[in-house]
Design a protein around this nucleic acid. Structure first.
Lengths: 211, 211
DNA sequence: GTTGTACTGGACCAATCGGTCCAATGCCTT
DNA sequence: AAGGCATTGGACCGATTGGTCCAGTACAAC
């Protein structure tokens, strides 16, 4: 498979570029992010940039890929068919912990995630991240169906509504966390992660009265 | 108090302007919203526009004010100090119903609300809506504190996080509901409304194990 | 009819945007 | 030394942005 032209860039310069572009995209969204600002900040000329990237979109996608690589392999490992009523919640809890560790060890991810959320509710820009997003919601639907089949998840709400609420809750928690990331120690982050995980348990567990 | 110059506009044209500008701002955010697009869509010339508005920001704020007027009077009527452990949830339930009615009867509000959420995470734009937002979240915080003082709301999560989650949940439910409005009968709507209100009860009620 | 005021059409402005193009580098190979 | 190729600086492009300016028009008051 042919590697991206930007691989030829000096490693340091490449890393710096993605760092700056990630920050710019996260701060302003895709359209309002200024390519001129990015390249001038790292002292790169227009022609140099367009030697390594085909356009602004290319840079955006490369910025995502470069940071998302590690995480895509780590958390998809969960085997949905192997989930049982006993190990469902423990498995999800463990996965959440691993996800948190991944975020802790690769700070680029935080910036990219901010970027992601930023672009998601912008109709003009969401098509750029839509494929990633659909991938995730599809996976989430599978988990929900499995949990319902095992009798551990509520079934009184429409699935699409449940997904929307879960996403909204997760996103708001993530955003809250991301905005205060540097204010917290590792331990505090883990505590909050545990407390908020309980929120999902609470939301998904069927009410006692129902079947 | 001196009224805004735009009051002199023909009533129909004024309403149409705010309608179009609201949609534009909601769809693209403040900065990416195109003033040229707005005025050309309603067939207004630049000079005419600037005769009634000082600039783009002025139009934005007027668009908000025009739509927010009705709601500001309706739901603030609740008397926080009069809330007791017994009437807390019933009062909130009633208020939620009233709020829903207000939203349903003034569709402009939905657009403006989308505009709000859109601008909230955009560092470049949030200062425009920050005052309104703080007003609302401040009110919400009062309710939360009252509920906590009465022992009816959980106290184990940071207040700002709790507010963010409540807002996110409310928004996602609202959007889900509105997108499928015509698919549901009146009974189904009431059922969903009740079920989703339960979600808030569930989220806010302290866990049995804690104090 | 003349004057004053409210309003409008449209040319125009500087700034910024993403993107193109080409001549000039530097460097490696022969 | 010479040729070839990767890389670069920077002028330039068309489009779009929010905003300005002014000449003119419509209309009411006198």
């Amino acid at each position: 498979m042919p590697q991206h032209p930007s691989q030829k860039l000096d490693a340091n310069k490449r890393q710096r570029l993605f760092q700056v572009s990630g920050a710019e995209f996260a701060a302003h969204g895709f359209k309002l992010a200024s390519l001129n600002r990015i390249i001038s900040e790292i002292g790169m000329s227009k022609s140099s940039f367009y030697h390594y990237f085909t356009n602004k979109t290319d840079l955006f996608l490369q910025t995502i890929d470069q940071a998302m690589g590690p995480v895509l392999e780590s958390h998809v490992t969960i085997d949905i068919d192997a989930l049982t009523a006993e190990n469902l919640w423990p498995s999800l809890l463990q996965m959440a912990g691993e996800l948190m560790e991944t975020f802790n060890s690769t700070p680029d991810l935080i910036v990219v995630t901010r970027m992601f959320y930023r672009c998601m509710d912008a109709p003009d820009e969401c098509e750029l991240v839509a494929p990633y997003m659909q991938n995730f919601t599809g996976w989430l639907a599978q988990i929900i169906q499995r949990g319902q089949a095992l009798g551990k998840f509520r079934t009184d709400l429409p699935e699409s509504l449940l997904i929307d609420i879960l996403l909204a809750m997760g996103m708001s928690i993530d955003r809250w966390m991301l905005a205060r990331w540097d204010d917290f120690s590792l331990v505090e982050r883990m505590n909050i992660s545990r407390d908020t995980f309980d929120l999902f348990v609470q939301l998904l567990t069927p009410k006692a009265g129902n079947t």
